[in-house]
Every structure is written in C-alpha cells, then in structure tokens.
C-alpha cells in the first residue's frame, strides 16, 4: 500500500503540474489573504468600540479558508484525474494488478498518495493565518477546527475524484465529471434552502458546504464527521469494486 502511495507521489512531483498548482494556489490565496487583511484594517477602528465584535480570526482567517475550500474544489479534479484514467490510457495498470497487491491496497495507496499532496498544499495555506500571530492574537481552536474541516473536505474531493477517474480512460473527462459532481454537491443546498422550512432537508444534508460551514465557525459536530467519513468510504469502496470489475469485464 505504501509503495503504491510512494510511486504515486513521486510521479506527481516529477511533473511540473503539481509544482505549478502548489505555487498558483498559494499565489491566489495570498492575494485574497491580503485583501481580507486590508478590509479588516479599514473597519477595525469602527468596530472596536462594539462589545463582542468579530476579531481577526472571524474577519480574516475564516473567509480565507472558505476561499481556500472553493479553490481546492476547482483544482482537485485536475490532480485526481490521472489516478486511474492515465493508467488505463498508458496500459500501465497491469503493473499494479500483476504485483502481489489487493485491489484495496492499490486504491488506498493511490488515495494516500494524492492526500499527501493536498496535505502539503494545506500546510502551505495554513502558514498564512499563522503569520498573523506576529501582530495579533488568534483563536487557535477555531483555526484548528477549520483546518480539520478543510482536511476532511479535501479527503472527500480526492475520494470522489479517484472514483470518477476509474470510470474512464480519458483524464479530462474524469476531471470534468469530478468537477461537476463536486460543484453540484457544493451548491445543492441553495436549492434545499429555498424549500419550505419544516420539511426534512435531505438535499441540504448532501451538501459538502453545509457540513464544512460549522467547522469553519469552530463547531465540530459528529454528524459532519460521519458525513465526511461516509462520503470517503463509499467512493473508495466503489473504486475497489470498479477495479475488480475490470478483471471481470465482458
């Protein structure tokens, strides 16, 4: 399992693609970070008189991580698209299949590989909020909860991306499918929230955003944790089934 992850990571970092994405995402978020700070500096004087006014964590870090979630949603499909689609197209899957590895090990190995890439990206991102410590006190509990939420969110993106990549031999199709699915699950609660209140809001329950938002505010609910865990589990299980299905194909 670890050797598959290692292979995946080294292949990822040998292409300029991964480095470019790391750099560009960092650049984009740095710009947003600075604009959030500037806005906060402007209104700081006006709101400082109000008791219980939002601090730097609520005004800068939370919006920044919210933006980061959206940016990662945009780029995750392009990273995960290669997972299996590329192997199918290169005819390199037999290398993994003929090795003494189970389908579970192959899928989890690839999953861990991509997760490591995104953890690196998140490490770079978290440096920005931490740099605020130089001039201000920040709420570590809220930051911790938000980062934990972001990790779970990205883990879900990757799980969905790896599964959709195993369905096709064209990486681009895999990327588009992943993007559509993730975007749908992101905005699905817009439709749900327009429903009459009082009904059971199952569309809203499916929304990734709906489960991420409380964590951004510092609440860790077991309902959200189980949602993300279930989401990853289901997609990884389907990927394993899919890998077996290649062997049984008619």
């Amino acid at each position: 399992m670890w050797c598959v992850a290692r292979l995946e990571i080294s292949r990822l970092f040998l292409s300029p693609f991964a480095w470019a994405i790391l750099a560009l995402v960092q650049f984009l978020l740095a710009y947003l970070f600075l604009s959030h700070i500037e806005y906060f500096a402007q209104i700081q004087g006006q709101i400082s008189a109000i008791p219980g006014a939002p601090g730097v964590t609520e005004m800068v870090i939370a919006p920044l991580l919210n933006n980061a979630a959206l940016v990662l949603l945009l780029i995750a499909p392009f990273i995960t698209m290669r997972a299996f689609a590329d192997e199918h197209r290169n005819h390199s899957l037999p290398l993994l299949i003929s090795a003494p590895l189970s389908a579970t090990q192959i899928v989890l190995g690839k999953y861990i590989g991509y997760l490591v890439f995104f953890l690196l990206q998140l490490t770079l991102i978290v440096l920005m909020p931490l740099s605020l410590m130089a001039g201000s006190a920040i709420d570590f509990y809220q930051l911790g909860a938000s980062m934990f939420g972001l990790i779970l969110l990205v883990a879900s993106f990757v799980a969905a991306g790896v599964f959709l990549s195993s369905l096709t031999t064209q990486p681009v199709i895999a990327a588009v499918m992943t993007f559509c699915l993730l975007f749908l699950l992101w905005v699905i609660d817009f439709a749900a929230s327009s429903n009459l209140s009082g009904q059971i809001n199952w569309l809203g329950w499916l929304s990734l955003l709906g489960h991420f938002q409380p964590m951004l505010e510092g609440q860790i609910n077991s309902v959200d944790l189980s949602f993300f865990a279930l989401f990853c589990f289901v997609f990884l299980l389907m990927t394993m089934r899919r890998l077996d299905a290649v062997r049984l194909s008619r």
Partner: peptide, 30 residues
Amino acid sequence: KAQLGYLPENPPLYRELTVSEYLKHCGRLN
C-alpha cells in the same frame, strides 16, 4: 502473483520516471 512476472503487449511503463527509478518502484511493488 509474487511468483509471477508479466510483460503485457504494451509494456506498462511510466514515461516520466528514469529507468532505475522505475525499476526500484517495481521492486517495491513486489
């Protein structure tokens, strides 16, 4: 499968790796 080596019709190569890197990964997979 531990006792099996297989070369398919299209060799399963990763073009972005060097030969010795690739063979190292193959050894690890096995």
